[in-house]
Design a protein around this nucleic acid. Structure first.
Length: 723
DNA sequence: GATGTTCCTG
DNA sequence: CAGGAACATC
């Protein structure tokens, strides 16, 4: 049997920080080694309440975050392995969020946390029961076979049972201490001081008939009974709100009715004030804990059915109340509406509430929301990702990308214009984020997204097999209705691809052009690993990244493996302004938060290949248009200064739209120059008829390849653009 | 064979 | 934007 310290010593690991990654099947990563393969059997399955915490049938392990301070990046990294071990295959963290800088803990997390503690106690007791029963059976056999040994055996059994009792008492003491701690946390979470509670109770004691109502009398009676038996003399349950133990069926039934009654009240409370409900639940959880466990412990020890009843009662209380709260929160959340004032914020995790403690700037939560592709943004944010991007651009006479354009609300709080070059904006932070605007470690933005998606999707049919890969319910009911969504985001503008139709293949790759680049890269980051094999462990599917609009298990898995995310794509696009042909070493340098392996590297390279493709297509397109129409498309000045790429031109707009969709960044002047150069090269080639040469683009590509600029050092920082 | 690039398609 | 084919380079 687990020792109490073992049992509760596990607590800290079981109260996992919310579990950003679904651990699909606890499969060890293909890379094997390094990560301790989670062993499902090493953790208790909480058979009693596990499913009760899954309102939608989706395992939603509540990772009550009791250590918000863990949520800085370093600790997150350090805890990665531990977390993996802690994961239990449920949609971890789907319910409650991280207490990122939060002053309060999630009520649901605490309930789940507490429930889990109680389950541990119960399990403890059941184990002792099994053990005890076994001993009893043995005695009976001996009684049949060897009467002479009967007395001795009995005495021995009694002795052992006494030992067991001692052990159990110790364990209960531990449990009690644990409960006390938890309750203090609950009180803290709900703003009620234990002292206040104490006052309340003592005040009640002074009232009426000696300060005891029926329940209290029963409690006292129950304890007295136990004390008479000499079993729980020191289990004074002082921190547990008074409530009866169940020592008679009649009283239990009556109590059950009372509980039903109060549950109805709670139902009302949940509609009007969630905090009250939670407190009630927790109080009664303590009641069951204080009475059920203690009582059942001894009943069970004597062979009674206390465990069953305790389980039933616990099931009732926690099942209905907790699940109801969770359901409600989920419902509220999935409605994408702001929380109605009737919902007490304390029933939401701090992750849901953003930062309540004021550690984060006011826009922090807004930025978190930016990371939620499926969440409709607030009306004041014109960049709603649900809308076609920049529709306004085509309908306005002035260029929306001009620096004079009002900044979008997201950026307004920041003193610097959004279009300043990154180097001048930040010394120590990501170039993408204003100094004050990155209150969370960037991965947490992803985590938040994952977390919220987990919640949102828990009530929806799976869109992708990955969404629910580790959901038993979905696994059973939905055999992977996989629909790849990667092609649902057409990026190319309506452009006559016929232009490209007659182009012949280049007779050579550009690889040789990278020789110089590689040499340069070799010195950029000491100890370049000499290629892409360095980080490869083959642990990531090539389909890990499915595009900014498709959040899937594969994406989560990618996050788990520190793979590529939509933010990395964004960063890559911005990086394209500096480097059209980044080598793999360059990529490794500038994506330090990505765990590189062959697939990730290929993916990044593929991205840049796509960027180039788009770039060249646009260049050629506008060059041809200029050659045909005299380049009116390139602005008024284009006749005086041929083929200038002004920032008010259509080409500029298109490029900016593609690489800098949300205007996080000012297009570097250097990029504008290079684009102009490329444009002129295409234009000249077309004008002079060189485009009839099958290899006519090659020289242009080569030229562009040489024009890569050093990527600002600020790009070396981990993270990615918000939103 | 691994890697990188372009082209093409969806 | 992904996937794949074809090709080049090492």
């Amino acid at each position: 049997m687990d020792s109490p310290s073992d049992l509760f010593g596990h607590q800290s690991s079981l109260i996992s920080p919310f579990d950003p990654y679904p651990n699909p099947s606890d499969h060890p990563t293909p890379s094997g080694g390094g990560h301790g393969a989670p062993n499902p059997s090493s953790r208790p399955p909480y058979p009693l309440i596990h499913h009760l915490l899954q309102p939608g049938g989706v395992p939603m392990r509540s990772g009550g975050q009791l250590h918000p301070q863990r949520y800085n990046r370093e600790e997150e990294e350090e805890g990665e392995m531990e977390r993996e071990e802690e994961e239990e295959g449920g949609m971890g963290g789907g319910l409650v969020g991280v207490g990122v800088g939060g002053k309060r803990l999630s009520g649901a997390a605490l309930v789940a946390d507490w429930s889990y503690d109680m389950m541990r106690v119960k399990r403890l007791r059941l184990e002792s029961l099994v053990k005890g029963d076994g001993e009893i059976g043995l005695e009976e056999e001996e009684e049949r076979g060897r009467r002479s040994a009967e007395r001795g055996n009995r005495e021995r059994g009694r002795e052992e049972r006494r030992k067991e009792r001692e052990e159990l008492k110790e364990q209960l003491e531990e449990a009690r201490g644990r409960l006390k701690t938890l309750q203090e946390k609950v009180w803290k979470a709900f703003g009620e001081r234990p002292a206040q509670e104490e006052r309340r109770r003592s005040g009640r004691e002074e009232d009426g008939d000696g300060g005891m109502d029926e329940e209290e009398e029963e409690t006292a009676e129950g304890i007295t009974e136990e004390e008479e038996g000499g079993e729980i003399d020191d289990l004074s349950l002082s921190f547990i709100p008074p409530s009866p133990p169940f020592y008679s069926v009649a009283k239990r039934d009556r109590k059950a009715r009372d509980h039903e009654k109060r549950m109805s009240e709670e139902q009302r409370n949940v509609n009007g004030g969630g905090g009250v409900l939670l407190e009630g639940v927790l109080e009664r959880a303590a009641v069951w804990m204080g009475c059920g466990v203690v009582r059942g412990e001894w009943e069970g020890f004597g062979g009674g059915g206390g465990s069953q009843k305790f389980a039933q009662a616990l099931k009732q209380e926690l099942g209905s109340a907790v699940a109801r709260v969770i359901d409600r929160v989920l419902r509220l959340y999935t409605q994408n509406d702001p929380l109605p004032p009737s919902i007490h914020p304390s029933i939401l995790s701090s992750g849901e509430r953003g930062n309540e403690g004021g550690d984060l700037p006011p826009h922090a939560f807004r930025e978190q929301s930016e990371a939620l592709p499926l969440v409709t943004r607030r009306p004041d944010n014109r960049r709603n990702t649900l809308l076609p991007p920049n529709n306004h651009a085509n309908n306005r006479t002035h260029n929306p990308l001009l620096p004079s354009h009002p900044l979008p609300p997201l950026r307004q709080p920041h003193p610097h214009p959004a279009f300043l070059p990154p180097v001048s904006r930040h010394k120590d932070s990501s170039p993408f984020l204003p100094p004050s605007s990155c209150p969370l470690p960037l991965p947490l933005l992803h985590y938040t997204m994952q977390q919220l998606f987990t919640r949102s999707l828990s009530h929806l049919p799976p869109l992708h097999k990955g969404d629910v890969m580790n959901s038993d319910a979905y696994m059973e009911g939905n055999p992977f209705p996989s629909q790849h969504t990667s092609s649902s985001h057409p990026s190319f503008p309506p452009l006559s691809l016929a232009l490209m139709g007659g182009l012949d293949r280049l007779d050579g790759g550009m690889q040789h052009l990278h020789d110089r680049e590689r040499e340069r890269d070799g010195g950029m980051r000491g100890g370049g690993d000499g290629g892409m094999r360095g980080g490869g462990d083959g642990g990531i599917d090539s389909g890990m990244y499915l595009g900014p609009g498709s959040i899937s298990f594969l994406f989560w898995k990618g996050e788990r493996e520190r793979g590529l995310s939509p933010c990395h794509l964004k960063k890559a696009k911005l990086m394209f302004f500096y480097a059209r042909y980044p080598s793999s070493n360059t990529l490794k340098t500038y994506f330090p938060d990505v765990k590189f392996n062959r697939c990730v590297t290929s993916q990044l390279i593929k991205w840049f290949s796509n960027f180039r493709e788009f770039f060249y297509i646009q260049m050629e397109r506008f060059a041809r248009q200029a050659a045909r129409d005299g380049a009116p498309c390139l602005g008024r000045d284009s006749r005086e200064t041929p083929l200038r790429l002004g920032r008010d031109t259509e080409l500029y707009r298109i490029l900016n739209m593609h690489y800098n969709k949300s205007n996080d960044y000012q297009v570097p002047e250097r990029f504008v120059e290079i684009a102009e150069l490329a444009l002129r090269e295409f234009f000249t080639a077309i004008q002079t008829g060189r485009d009839s040469d099958p290899c006519w683009k090659k020289s242009i590509y080569k030229m562009i390849c040489k024009l890569d600029s050093p990527v600002p050092d600020s790009f070396r920082l981990p993270g990615c653009p918000i939103g």
